[in-house]
Design a protein around this nucleic acid. Structure first.
Lengths: 228, 228
DNA sequence: GATCGCAATTTTGTATACAATTCCGGATGC
DNA sequence: GCATCCGGAATTGTATACAAAATTGCGATC
């Protein structure tokens, strides 16, 4: 996969690479991430792989089972709800701040993001589109100039991607782009209150598009179901 | 320090032990945490120490400088503001939820926490009192049954302890206990709105008790100031 | 006497060796 | 035929060896 890159991979670049792969659904929930396997893929020793896996586990993107290895996380229904409740607390008011601090450059960045997402959808690159859609939210926190909140939102966005992989229901062509467009308009008008309201609705729509009924979790593989 | 414990230290227990030491101001901001030193102290190899340090760095409690080592973090004025802004978004509404879910057992837990903090203050154990004071906030998130938010709050609380170490101004005998007592009453009355309001005020009071004017940071050591 | 440079020491970064645990398949016995 | 047990293979956990970088201290030089 990445074996022929001459880049000097470090634990942080490997973690970022893996996080993106997870975010884009190239590594679906439940996937086993073997240390030797990854080490070979990146051309590094297990030492660095382990550091990267540790970082991802701290972000709740993978689960480390002692003596068993690393697996792409499979958020429970409960956890999924919590993630979106946390987002509901953080993102609307952050959008409000962002609207007030909005610059022309930032607007261009956001507009470009929507553009790229559209292009990705047209090209059938759904994973990439999902990633870009997430970046839109992270970018807002960055524009609000809140590094700390940005870090939390970034984690929550990546976890949301896992949640979408597991519980996505609505087949409709993403209304996403529509919601982001509306937000963009609010930002362009520097209307903080509107941006906050739109973000709140957007998040509610997102949750509504999930199937979070408390049915027994469908395990990805039979193995996982029985091995506990 | 811990050399004679027969416990089997793991990266997670070591990280927890270090975090508590930082939280209680036994390890002040800027302190160098040498790997060999820690390994000797806990009777483990650097491998586990490094995993623990990695975990703490992900929580922004220590800073890892490449080829230089690990240092207890020294949050900037900017970062300090951000931490409290994040807390302002998360904690008030979490307190609201907690009030609505409050049980008798939880009330006893919180009451006990205040009790212990008082005892610690009387005994002159200020570090321990500060730790307990932080636990009060984490406990609220736990009572609200929000594991994800609890994790964020827990990190923010620990970082707040570093901020207090650096920027604490007011000498007054902590009004803390007073604020926590008022919160407890709101919880006992299951008054969510009041709890939310009290928490908001409490956090504002906390920030007000800090000296976050943008003066040049007083570095713990001259070295740190010049070595960049 | 102060400054600069170089080497020795210390400390961190990475790979690897070895131990411990789990996984998997086959043989065995009921 | 089915379950169980056992042993080899594979994988993770931990320690350690070695490499690379930074710090320190000494001594030469001006």
């Amino acid at each position: 996969m990445n074996s022929f890159d001459s880049k000097p991979w470090s634990s942080v670049t490997v973690a970022a690479d893996l996080e993106r792969a997870i975010h884009e659904h190239r590594l679906p929930p439940g996937t086993k991430l073997g240390e030797d396997e990854l080490g070979d893929a990146y051309g590094i020793s297990r030492t660095i792989v382990r550091a990267a896996l540790l970082a991802l586990s701290h972000r709740h993107l993978i689960e480390l089972k002692r003596n068993r290895g690393a697996f792409v996380a499979q958020p429970s229904v409960r956890e999924s709800r919590e993630v979106f409740e946390a987002r509901a607390l953080l993102e609307p008011r952050t959008a409000h701040s962002a609207a007030e601090r909005m610059t022309e450059d930032s607007l261009i960045l956001l507009r470009d993001n929507i553009e790229q997402e559209h292009a990705a959808l047209d090209a059938g690159e759904n994973g990439r589109a999902l990633f870009l859609s997430g970046q839109f939210h992270v970018e807002i926190a960055r524009i609000a100039d809140q590094t700390t909140i940005e870090a939390f939102v970034s984690e929550l966005i990546s976890r949301s991607s896992l949640i979408i992989a597991l519980y996505w229901r609505r087949r409709a062509a993403m209304c996403e782009t529509q919601a982001h467009h509306a937000l963009l308009d609010a930002f362009a008008a520097r209307d903080g209150a509107l941006a906050e309201q739109l973000m709140k609705s957007h998040l509610l729509d997102l949750v509504a598009s999930l199937d979070l009924r408390n049915v027994t979790q469908p395990p990805t593989s039979l193995r996982e179901a029985l091995n506990r």
